[in-house]
Every structure is written in structure tokens, then in C-alpha cells.
Design a protein around this nucleic acid. Structure first.
Length: 870
RNA sequence: GGAGGCAUAGCUCAGUCGGUUAGAGCGCUCGCUUCACAUGCGAGAGGUCGUAGGUUCGAAUCCUACUGUCUCUACCA
């Protein structure tokens, strides 16, 4: 027997430990069953569990449990990401507290510390994930820097290098002066900020002509190597080819003509700083301009900055503006809003800087990746994200993959100091294969974290060794993650997998949104509005968390996580618990029958039919990845059908004197509950297992039980319809009681005139659910003061003596009549429409006719009642 | 600049292939400690589905425009 109150903390840990110990999460590679596999988006080892992980895991675990119960050989592979920048920053900070600079330790020493850190804290997030109930196969836990993954990184890099898809070159990249590394375009976040437009000009050496322009970053002027105008701009044609002088550095630079300059914008003159602006860099290339860097890696001005050398970039900006003003060169300052890029890790403003970095040539990789989605080989759910993906892929630029960090996969390229050769092989060279020289040294940089994440679906499965896992589980079935990492991760996995394995890494991409707070704001540390899932689970249980995140949410849409939602979900779990307790309490000590041996009551037939309906719906929805709707179906079935009606309808039999009927009813109750637990298990694994273990008949675990399937033996359309009519009748009587304020405890009499004779067989149900002491299946005797209501299967009258208020009655009937008349008009309108009759499907026309007939009957009844009253 | 989402009850949101008397939860009103559950039960009120056109026998649903709103993306100095 289960506990009296629902206390998830009393069993969730215990059950999870049991599942793990018994190896339920681990699939077999030798199974004949069809495979179903997923890999998790690996959380950063520096990460703390947040609701995003909660959502991500809830979705994937629901899917994997569903598939497992359907008999698939399921693998859900977990792992963690080394998170190059994030981890290095964290360790550098820790060292700083000890007064140590990472350079003091040297590369080796630093890495030793980093691995230590990883061993100590890297598993924390894994333990937190377990509290969500995730049925990942922890025996296969992967890490982006473990052997499998590192081998795959090396293999992929070398192959791409040899194919000419990886190159090294001087390009403008985004530089983070705080992390002191290059970043990819995807790693820069743009934000609109208030800035200034400083207007000033450069003058020709003879001091006669000044060309004026505006800039938002005056400090870059120290690196200016030209001033550009549009070739068609008549205002400046005479100046093209002349030179002007950059103050402070006294550099004579040419005035050039380039299409890039927009004549309409500002003065139509642009100062060109090839070393610090992507567009200027391109202009510089076209005109063979010198590239002069004026900044150091830490954002201070370098020796090329003359008198400003050593200053921080913003300090230098101020100083330059002040000096320009002093010199009387500054013409005006305008406020200006512009987008400023910042580092996605530390939020420092990034600096576009020319730098020698490694890049992946994207165009050849993007083509097949675009094709895979366009052809439908890979499908996004919801579909609209395909546009987002394609839009990005079609406009993609080369990917900067080198990072000036130590923690990560070191770039497997060696340089020979003797002959200058560049060596890139799968095994580490000891001498230069070109000249045999021993003076070789490895590139200092590491790879972008996302380079290894991009290989995740196959690297983790042992792609390099063509392992059994790889053969069995690759390509994976579904990839689920938030839409915020489509570019970082999903897109890169697709092209990496197509390139390396020749196959798409997965067939379906299931996107979810972001978890927001009650007011729709992103949860963040600085706002302090985050919910700690660990704490939450202690309080409400993992099932409530998971269900609250999934229930009724459409794929890809953001979620507002509110206390209301939590309460509602917790209440639902409590409902499941108590309904189960009702069944189990009544079953105690009884020997139940298989339902094939049960004489089914009307209520039994109804609930079994409804059960079949819900099985079909939930399965269909899960097959379409509509988890939110599937859980909603379960919610409605359990609460509104099973609890509100079926359990109530079983009470006459349970509390009656017929022992045989009682056993029969209990057998059906237990049968339906068993199915409910199984249907609900993927959504709420803990509560369902705990209750399941208390069932009169149960196996070792519900999680490997077969997911319920539609059973045509228990589908009774006619009986089901009758019960729906019965519910309507019961609602009418209850309504009268309520409207007339009859105390719920008061037993009253009702007259029921059944249009459908089978209603008379429902005596026990009506009496119990309406609190009647007697039901008379005949019209009320003449002269008795009653309140009357009509529904499809019957008319009912409740004698209320002097309570009956004639005017109120007339009003009530009139209101109903109005409603029914409206419906008749609507149905008539449809049926009177030739187009409808000719073109609408026959079943709809029939249904409309049936409705019309029903409403006309009702109208007659209501009219008769009205006549009676007046 | 480009792309996309959203706009449905007081609030938060479902609504799949166009056909339901437009749904849920919360909130609200009334009544109830009825032997699974007051984390509950019963009864109710509340919506011309953003606006204007169009397609269709039929539109919350499809198309066009507009208005409002949010997000992504680009980065005109």
C-alpha cells in the first residue's frame, strides 16, 4: 500500500538508485529490437543545473522512456562538455585568488590543475541531472576530451586540413580582450548601446583641404591607412589619389575610391582602418593598404599608437578626443546608438582585430548540410526552424576555430623551424617529415569547444574504431535542444557528420524554447530570478518539475514558469496519488479477475472505451513529438474522466452488497489504473513507479513494461454514447439543485422521463451522483411543483415545492430555448446550403442532420414546458 | 537592412488535415469538511479568436495588407 500523502522526496532517490543498479538504462548492442538513440546536449562541466537542463531532460527522457516501453532498443547517451573558455576562465579566477597567474604554472602545470578541477567539479552537473529522473545510460558517459572524442577531433581536423577545408590566415576576427582569445562570429552577442559620432577630418599636407568624416571609434584612427570616398562622388573626385595626414602619428595616407562607401551616409567619407574593422580590412585588401594594428591583446594601445601607447582603449579614446578638441580639429559630437558586440562568456566588448587564426572553409560544407534539410532527410520540429537554419547556412562565413587558450583540444599542427614546413597528421610527429629536422613545435592554440561538440553524435559512439555502438546506434534518431543553439551546435553537427561519416547525424530535430520567469524575463544570475531545480525537486519532486515544463507547451515556444503552474501540476500529481490510493485501498485483500472474465458494467465499458481513445491519442501525439499535447491528454483523462466520473460511477458497486459486482468493478478499476500508470510513466516516472509497485499485480518495474496499445475488444461506442448522455442528465439535475440552493446533504426525489430506455438502467449512478433518495421513471404527477430540465436522453423534474419560482423557471427555459434555437438556425443554415450538401464530406452532413434532429426534439420539449408554465 | 514568431476569456496559454455549441489552468461568483483527495467536490459567470480585405459550401485555422509586440540575424563608417 502506498503512503497516505504524496511525498515525492520519500521515494524518488530510492527508485532512481534501483533503476540504475538494475541496469534498466543500458541497452544491448546485440538486441534484435529496432534501435532508437539520442545524445544529450552535453552541459558544461562548469555548469550548474538550471531549468533549461530540466526542460531539455524532461523532453528527452519522456521520449526515450516512451520508445523503450514500445520495445525499441534505446540508447540515450549522456556526457559533458569541456567548455574551453568557460572552464579556463573559471580556473584562472581560482588561481588568481591564490595569487597565481596561469603563465607562472606554464601550460603543463595549468592543464594539470584543469584536469584536477574537472575531476573534482565536472561530475556535479551529472549528479544533478540524475535527480531529474533521466534514464541516460551512465555507463557510456562521455566527455568531449575523452579518448573517443579526442580521436575524432584529431581525425576530423586532419582530414579537413588535407582536403583544404581548414586553413590558417590573417583575417579580422572578434577578439575578447578579457579572455584574450579569438572568438567565432557565433560567440559574439550584439547589443544596442548609446555611443557617439565624432566628426573631424584629415588635412592635405599643404594644409589647404580637409576631408571630414565621422567615427564611433576615434582610437582606431592611429591605424588608419587611407580615407575612402565613393568613385562616383563628384564632391571628392578631385581628391582621389591625393594624400592627407593622420594627426598624432603624422602618417600620410591616400584618399582612395571604393564602392563600399555610401555617398548618402554622413559626409560620404570613411576613414579606413584595415587592422580593426572587417569592412576596412576588405577595402584595404582591394587597395593593397598597409595593415597597422594599434592595440595589444589586452585592449591597451600598442607601440604604433605613439603618445597613446600603453593606454587602455577607452582611455585612449578619451585622450584622443580631448587632443582633437584642443587642436580645434573636432567639429562636432553627436549622440549615436549603435550595436556593440560582446563576448558571450564574459560580456566584455569585443574588438575586431586582424590576427593569424585557423579557419574552416564553410561553403563546401554548408552545401550538403543545406541539401540534407531541404530534401527532408533531416526534419525540424516545429518546421519553421528550418528557415532559421537555412538562412544562416546560406549566408555562412568561414568559421574561426582557433582559441588562444590552453584548456581544450590543441591544434594538431606542427611547424618545422628548419625548413618552415607545416605538419598535420593523425599521429604526433617527432621529426619533420619534410627535412628530417628535429626543431618542430606544435601550434600553441586550442580548438573552439564547438568543434568537438560538432562531432558529438558520432565521436561518443566510437566512430573512430567503428565500434558496435556506432554500428548499432548511428545515425541517432532524434536530437532535442533549445533553439538558441541551432547555430552553435545543430548546424555544426549536421555539416560535420555529413562530412566525416557521410550521413546525417539524426533524422528529427526537436526544438524547445527558453524557460522564463513569471514575468517572461530570461532567468539569469544577475536578476536573481532563477529557480534552482535541485531545491525545487526536494520540495515538489522531479515529476512535478518535468510535468510543469512539458504540459500543454507547444514545441519551440518559450515557457513561463510560474508558481501557479507549479501548484497546478503538484495538485495533479496529488490527484493521481489519491485516486490510486482509492483503488489500492479498495483492492486490499481482494483477489481480482482478469478483465476478460469480468461482466462489464456500463461505466466499465465507457471508461475502457475512453481509455482506448486516450491510448490512441497519446501514442499518436508522442509519435509526432507533440509532448505537450500528449501530457495534456493524460491530464484530462486522469482528472476529468477517470477521477471525476469513473471513480464516482464505481462507488455504487463498491459500496453495494453484491460481492461479485464489487470484484468485477475493482478488477476494471485496477486494470485502468495500471494502464494509466504506464501511459503516464514517460512523463512522470517516479510517481508512476512508486504506485505501480503497490499494485496488486506488478512486475519488477513499470519502465520496461509494454506501452499500452489500442485494444478493439474494449471499444463500446454505443455504451459510451449512453454514458455521455447520462453525464448530461446528471449535470442537469445537479444544476437544478445548485440553482435552487438545495443543500448537498439533502436527499431528494427526481422524476426522469427517459427518451432512451437504457437510462432507466442507470438508477444507481444517478442516485449516487445526484444525491437522490428516489428516482421515479415517470413524469411528475400533475399539480406537483417541479423544476424541469431537458437533455438529449431524458427530461428530468425535481419537485421543490414552494421553492419553485415560476418567473425564474420561465427565464431559465427561455434562455435554453434561445440557445437551442440558435443551434437550429445554424444547422439549418448549413443544411440549406447547396454547396455544403454537395461538397462537404458525407459524414459531416449526416452529423449535422443528427444534430438538427436532436435540437428540434429539445426545442419541442422546452416549448412544451414553457406552455405548461404560462 | 533581412528573417521569423506572437496577437484567442481578467491573467498565462492550448487549439494538428479548414467543419467542435471555440477549450484548459489560474483568477472570479455561489454552495459544500459527501467515507481517495479542501493540493479537494459540485454549480456558474466570462470570448463578434488584433484590424481590413480575399479564397472557400464553410475560416480562430489558408492568402494579402495593416497595427501592435517579441525574438533571431546583419553590422552603414
Amino acid at each position: 500500500m502506498i503512503d497516505k500523502t504524496y511525498q515525492p522526496s520519500s521515494f524518488e532517490r530510492r527508485l532512481y538508485k534501483q533503476w540504475m543498479e538494475r541496469g534498466y538504462f543500458t541497452p544491448s548492442v546485440h538486441s534484435d529490437a529496432p534501435p532508437f538513440s539520442m545524445v544529450t546536449p552535453p552541459p558544461n562541466i562548469t555548469g550548474q543545473l538550471h531549468l533549461g537542463h530540466g526542460l531539455d531532460n524532461a523532453i528527452q527522457d519522456t521520449l526515450i522512456r516512451f520508445k523503450r516501453m514500445q520495445g525499441y532498443n534505446t540508447l540515450w547517451l549522456p556526457g559533458t562538455d569541456h567548455a574551453s573558455i568557460a572552464t579556463e576562465v573559471k580556473i584562472v579566477e581560482a588561481l588568481k585568488k591564490e595569487g597565481v597567474d596561469k603563465r607562472d604554472l606554464g601550460r603543463e602545470g595549468f592543464l594539470e590543475r584543469a584536469w584536477q578541477w574537472k575531476e573534482q567539479y565536472g561530475g556535479r552537473i551529472v549528479e544533478q541531472l540524475k535527480s531529474l529522473g533521466s534514464s541516460c545510460d551512465w555507463t557510456r558517459l562521455a566527455f568531449t576530451m575523452d579518448e573517443n572524442c579526442s580521436k575524432a577531433v584529431r581525425k576530423a581536423f586532419v582530414r579537413m586540413y588535407k582536403d583544404g577545408l581548414i586553413y590558417r590566415g590573417d583575417r579580422i576576427i572578434n577578439w575578447c580582450p578579457q579572455c584574450k582569445t579569438a572568438l567565432s562570429d557565433a560567440e559574439v552577442e550584439y547589443e544596442e548601446r548609446d555611443g557617439h559620432f565624432w566628426h573631424y577630418g584629415y588635412t592635405t599636407p599643404d594644409g589647404k583641404t580637409t576631408v571630414t568624416f565621422a567615427t564611433t571609434r576615434p582610437e582606431t584612427m592611429l591605424g588608419d591607412t587611407a580615407v575612402a570616398v565613393n568613385p562616383n562622388d563628384a564632391r571628392y573626385t578631385h581628391l582621389v589619389g591625393k594624400t592627407v595626414v593622420v594627426p598624432f602619428v603624422n602618417r600620410e595616407i591616400p584618399v582612395i575610391a571604393d564602392e563600399y562607401v555610401d555617398m548618402e551616409f554622413g559626409t560620404g567619407v570613411v576613414k579606413i582602418t584595415p587592422a580593426h574593422d572587417p569592412n576596412d580590412f576588405e577595402v584595404g585588401r582591394r587597395h593593397n593598404l598597409p595593415v597597422i594594428r594599434v592595440m595589444n591583446d589586452d585592449g591597451t594601445m600598442n607601440e604604433n599608437a605613439g603618445e597613446f601607447a600603453g593606454m587602455d582603449r577607452y582611455e585612449a579614446r578619451k585622450a584622443i578626443v580631448a587632443r582633437l578638441q584642443e587642436m580645434g580639429v573636432l567639429q562636432k559630437v553627436e549622440p549615436h546608438k549603435h550595436n556593440v558586440g560582446s563576448c558571450y562568456r564574459c560580456h566584455t566588448t569585443v574588438e575586431p582585430i586582424v590576427s593569424k587564426q585557423w579557419f574552416v572553409k564553410m561553403e563546401p560544407l554548408a552545401k550538403p548540410a543545406i541539401q540534407a534539410v531541404k530534401s527532408g532527410e533531416i526534419k525540424f520540429h516545429p518546421e519553421r526552424f528550418e528557415k532559421t537554419y537555412l538562412n544562416w547556412m546560406e549566408n555562412i562565413r568561414d568559421w574561426c576555430i582557433s582559441r588562444q587558450l590552453w584548456w581544450g583540444h590543441r591544434i594538431p599542427v606542427w611547424y618545422c623551424d628548419d625548413c618552415g614546413a607545416e605538419i598535420c597528421e593523425e599521429t604526433d610527429p617527432t621529426v619533420c617529415p619534410n627535412c628530417g629536422g628535429k626543431h618542430i613545435r606544435q601550434d600553441e592554440d586550442v580548438l573552439d569547444t564547438w568543434f568537438s561538440s560538432a562531432l558529438w553524435p558520432f565521436s561518443t559512439l566510437g566512430y573512430c574504431s567503428n565500434s558496435d555502438d556506432f554500428k548499432t546506434f548511428f545515425p541517432t534518431s532524434v536530437l532535442s535542444c533549445g533553439y538558441d543553439i541551432i547555430f552553435f551546435w545543430v548546424a555544426r553537427m549536421i555539416f560535420s557528420s555529413l562530412y566525416n561519416t557521410g550521413k546525417a547525424p539524426f533524422k528529427d530535430v526537436l526544438m524547445h524554447g527558453i524557460v522564463r520567469d513569471e514575468q517572461g524575463r530570461k532567468m539569469s544570475k544577475s536578476l536573481g530570478n532563477g529557480v534552482d531545480p535541485v531545491e525545487f525537486i526536494d520540495r515538489y519532486g522531479a515529476d512535478t518539475l518535468r510535468f510543469a515544463l512539458i504540459n500543454g507547451v507547444a514545441n519551440g515556444s518559450d515557457i513561463r514558469f510560474s508558481q501557479d503552474k507549479i501548484d497546478g501540476t503538484r495538485n495533479f500529481m496529488n490527484k493521481v496519488w489519491n485516486a490510486s490510493r482509492f483503488v489500492l485501498m479498495n483492492c486490499e485483500g481482494k483477489t481480482l479477475k482478469d478483465i476478460s472474465a469480468v461482466k462489464l458494467s456500463l461505466a466499465d465499458k465507457w471508461i475502457l472505451t475512453k481509455l482506448n481513445d486516450v491510448i490512441r491519442q497519446v501514442t499518436e501525439l508522442l509519435d509526432k513529438f507533440e509532448l505537450g499535447m500528449a501530457s495534456q491528454c493524460m491530464y484530462d483523462f486522469v482528472w476529468s474522466e477517470f477521477c471525476d466520473w469513473y471513480i464516482e460511477l464505481t462507488k455504487p458497486a463498491l459500496y453495494g452488497s453484491d460481492d461479485k459486482a464489487r470484484i468485477d468493478t475493482l478488477s476494471v478499476l485496477a486494470y485502468v489504473l495500471d494502464k494509466i500508470l504506464k501511459l503516464l510513466h514517460p512523463f512522470a516516472p517516479f510517481i508512476t513507479e512508486e504506485i505501480y509497485q503497490g499494485m496488486p499485480v506488478h512486475s519488477e518495474t513499470v519502465m520496461t513494461e509494454r506501452y499500452p496499445e489500442y485494444d478493439g475488444k474494449y471499444f463500446f461506442a454505443d455504451d459510451c454514447k449512453l454514458v455521455e448522455e447520462l453525464k448530461e442528465l446528471i449535470a442537469k439535475i445537479r444544476n437544478i439543485r445548485s440553482e435552487y440552493g438545495v443543500a448537498p446533504s439533502k436527499r431528494i426525489r427526481a422524476y426522469v422521463l427517459a427518451f432512451d430506455n437504457r437510462i432507466t438502467e442507470c438508477d444507481g449512478y444517478i442516485a449516487k451522483l445526484c444525491g437522490l433518495e428516489e428516482t421515479v421513471y415517470a413524469p411528475a404527477p400533475k399539480g406537483e411543483k417541479t423544476v424541469k430540465a431537458v437533455c438529449s436522453a431524458a427530461a428530468c423534474e425535481v419537485p421543490l415545492g414552494d421553492l419553485v419560482d415560476k418567473d425564474k423557471e420561465i427565464e431559465r427555459i427561455n434562455k435554453e430555448l434561445e440557445n437551442v434555437t440558435g443551434e437550429i438556425a445554424r444547422a439549418n443554415g448549413k443544411l440549406g446550403n447547396r454547396g455544403f450538401l454537395a461538397k462537404a464530406p458525407a459524414n459531416l452532413v449526416e452529423a449535422e442532420k443528427a444534430k438538427l434532429a436532436k435540437y428540434e426534439d429539445l426545442r419541442k420539449q422546452l416549448q412544451a414546458r414553457l406552455d405548461e408554465l404560462s
